[in-house]
């Protein structure tokens, strides 16, 4: 009985302490998380409203830096799914309120490796950036595999695959990461990439297998 009372009182204390998050932040964070989930799981119809809501909530805080993070998140998701993105909105924010780490991240996503400031980039991408500068695919595969966060791993794969010569190991890492998480949108993109990779090398049997698998998954 004594134990139960102690546990409840501790819980009460925690409850008191953690109730200071502003509403906009709570809602903005949730919407951005929902946006990520819907984007990666390929629910294309419901994706954009989440981003618009997240953007609206964050904008109400007048914090351009947070807004830039929201846009960069969007670009990162596109990169992870091997899609093109237009960074005009971020460029406008950056002009108004320059932020070196955001700029470094954007350069990285756009494949401007020489312009990327390694010290301002999140530490998990440092190894990949080095490998990209050296164009060392083996090192890159090793560095990418070492990234803990699955989304960051997929983003690193996307950056390499979009701007540097494709590597089958990196494609496999991306496919297995997307499959594990059930992220349909990047999964299909990487399978399609793998198919074209095999086609380019004249490995028709492998290419056909990948193609059939993709068709079955999409059915």
């Amino acid at each position: 009985m004594k134990k139960i009372i102690t546990i409840f009182s501790v819980m009460f204390l925690f409850a008191c302490g953690s109730n200071s998050v502003p509403d906009w932040k709570d809602r903005g964070f949730t919407q951005l998380e929902n946006y990520k989930t819907h984007f990666l799981s390929g629910k294309e119809d419901t994706v954009e409203p989440h981003f618009i809501k997240a953007r609206r909530e964050i904008a109400s805080s007048n914090d351009l830096n947070l807004l830039a993070v929201a846009y960069l998140t969007k670009y990162a998701l596109h990169t992870a799914s091997l899609e093109h993105f237009d960074a005009a909105d971020f460029a406008r924010l950056q002009r108004l309120e320059p932020n070196p780490s955001n700029m470094a991240y954007c350069h990285f996503l756009k494949g401007n490796f020489r312009a990327t400031d390694a010290t301002a980039l999140p530490a998990r991408y440092m190894g990949v950036l080095k490998a990209a500068l050296d164009r060392d695919a083996t090192l890159a595969a090793r560095e990418i595999a070492a990234i803990d966060d699955p989304l960051s791993r997929l983003i690193a794969c996307g950056v390499w695959t979009r701007y540097l010569p494709e590597d089958v190991r990196i494609l496999q890492i991306a496919i297995s990461t997307a499959s594990e998480q059930g992220w349909r949108r990047p999964l299909w993109a990487y399978l399609a990439k793998l198919q074209s990779y095999h086609n380019e090398r004249g490995e028709q049997a492998k290419a056909t297998m990948v193609k059939e698998r993709l068709e079955l998954l999409k059915k």
């Binding site: 409850a15 998050v21 964070f29 951005l32 947070l66 929201a70 955001n102 999140p122 960051s152």
Partner: peptide, 11 residues
């Protein structure tokens, strides 16, 4: 008390 860390970070 299962509140997530609400820090906005690039993924």
């Amino acid at each position: 008390g299962s509140k997530k860390d609400l820090e906005f970070k690039v993924p």
